[in-house]
Write a protein that binds this DNA or RNA. Structure first.
Lengths: 268, 268
DNA sequence: CGAGGAATTGAGTAGGTTCAAGGCCGGTGG
DNA sequence: CCACCGGCCTTGAACCTACTCAATTCCTCG
């Protein structure tokens, strides 16, 4: 599955491979990137709203989330970041962060300087394409969240978020078929879904009563994933996990030829 | 007001200039792009969820929106697209649309083929950078919407959306200080904010009673914009309209040198 | 073993929905 | 120019989902 150079399993490689066929060199580079990880303890704030962004990041272990705090102290969690997520690539374009980032449990994150990003995109088009695809995926998740917050009931929202987290962890090989790590507190779930922790609790209780899932020791066990997806109205296609190799290759070839023709290529 | 080729005012140029200093050649190219516009009548569907995306687009006149329909017929509007918005640049990366796009009033949109996009990015780094920045801006708007839907009251939501639309139109020179075109129906607003048209109506009535705004002939008049922003908790910084020339230039120079050094550059 | 955050419970409340009906345009055709 | 039509806005009353507040229990970690 993921492995390579050393002996290590690398969620970033695993994720990007889904989209783009990576060369051994590519894989080596990604492993090297992830090797320079920094450790953060639980609940540590990595980036603060208003700061200038410093670098891009790759999550290698643990979990983090983007969030905004409102003046009255309420919090809205925007996205969860799990191992394999390579984010804030646009670091040099934005002047200030419009949100903060914090860890959930103990987490390891590898900062990636802008020069490295530039090098990757310049010399490793397959990684570049895969990163771009992964940014599209994150944007699609934002849209999906808007649909959930806007038009779904609380049970449906909760179910949807759990389904998304399960699928994302499955993709990077971190999920058994029926269980994932879920270090989230009910308050975290609530803040991600625009609900109250009290209400999230009641929803989860009902899910348990209905034999849909169990939660214990920071693990989520799915007892009836199908039914949960039905409640969520979960349509995983928005994660765009259905790429075919042929198309990717064709795209990359186009990149190459355009590059030969002139100079640079690729972009948002 | 709308014209093109020759001497005309171009909302795309206006918008991108905010970020990146464009050469005359750049401007010419953008004008040419916008000249090949197609006309759509009110309520016409431009792209359907599930389809393969065909090309990128620039809105030149009118207004459109991205949306999703749920199985039960409910609708969630994701973003509004106004003149100057250049969107779906990632067209070649995604296999299927995860949402649909439709016009509101009569609207003109210029399709931009992938080869043109590639050419722009390859030969016009300033436009490329500006487009990338504009994509970041769209993503920031998605995040802001999540915050609104998740943690703000209905009046606050409505006020926020109006403030955003006013500011966006102002940026492209389509707003007087106190009035903008607003061809949206109350149902549209409701579907964008996860509310009911009935409730949106009551909120707007209250705004009018409080002398905050008036709505007539598809125009929104602000009577007390400051107070409206206060109700919205509107912090326009997320639109990243505060770039300074120096930074942009520095970034572009880096693009140039990296390009010289190798081949391509730039990316998601 | 103790402490503090997290989960749970209950009762009362409120913001927003639902349903249904009526009124107001603006556009269209005679 | 007027009458008609359909979509949109407006209104009211009943309802319900999810919130608030506060107290209690449960865990987990030190």
């Amino acid at each position: 599955m993921g492995g390579n150079i050393g002996r290590s399993w690398n969620p970033l490689v695993k994720k990007l491979s889904l989209f783009s066929p990576l060369s051994d060199e590519d894989v080596g580079l990604l492993n090297a990137l992830c090797a320079k990880e920094e450790r953060f303890r639980a609940g540590e704030i990595i980036a603060v709203e208003g700061d200038a962004p410093r670098s891009a990041f790759v999550v290698t272990h643990g979990m983090a989330f983007r969030y905004r705090l409102l003046p009255d102290g309420r919090r809205q969690i925007l996205t969860f970041l799990i191992p394999g997520d390579f984010f804030d690539l646009h670091v040099f374009l934005l002047k200030t962060m419009d949100h903060s980032i914090s860890t959930i449990g103990p987490t390891r994150i590898a900062p990636v300087g802008r020069d490295v990003v530039i090098d990757i995109v310049a010399h490793h088009p397959r990684i570049g394409a895969a990163l771009w695809w992964s940014a599209m995926q994150e944007e699609a998740m934002l849209r999906e969240r808007i649909v959930a917050l806007g038009r779904r009931s609380a049970p449906s929202c909760v179910a949807y978020l759990l389904c998304e987290l399960v699928l994302r962890q499955r993709v990077i090989g971190m999920a058994g078929d029926h269980a994932i790590r879920l270090p989230l507190t009910q308050t975290d779930l609530a803040d991600a879904l625009g609900l109250t922790s009290v209400h999230v609790d009641r929803v989860l209780q009902r899910f348990r009563r209905d034999q849909l899932l169990t939660l214990e020791h920071r693990r989520l066990n799915l007892r009836n994933g199908g039914r949960l997806e039905a409640i969520a109205g979960f349509m995983p296609n928005y994660l765009q996990l259905n790429r075919t190799l042929a198309e990717v290759i064709r795209y990359l070839d186009e990149l190459e030829s355009a590059r030969a023709g002139s100079g640079r290529l690729e972009d948002a």
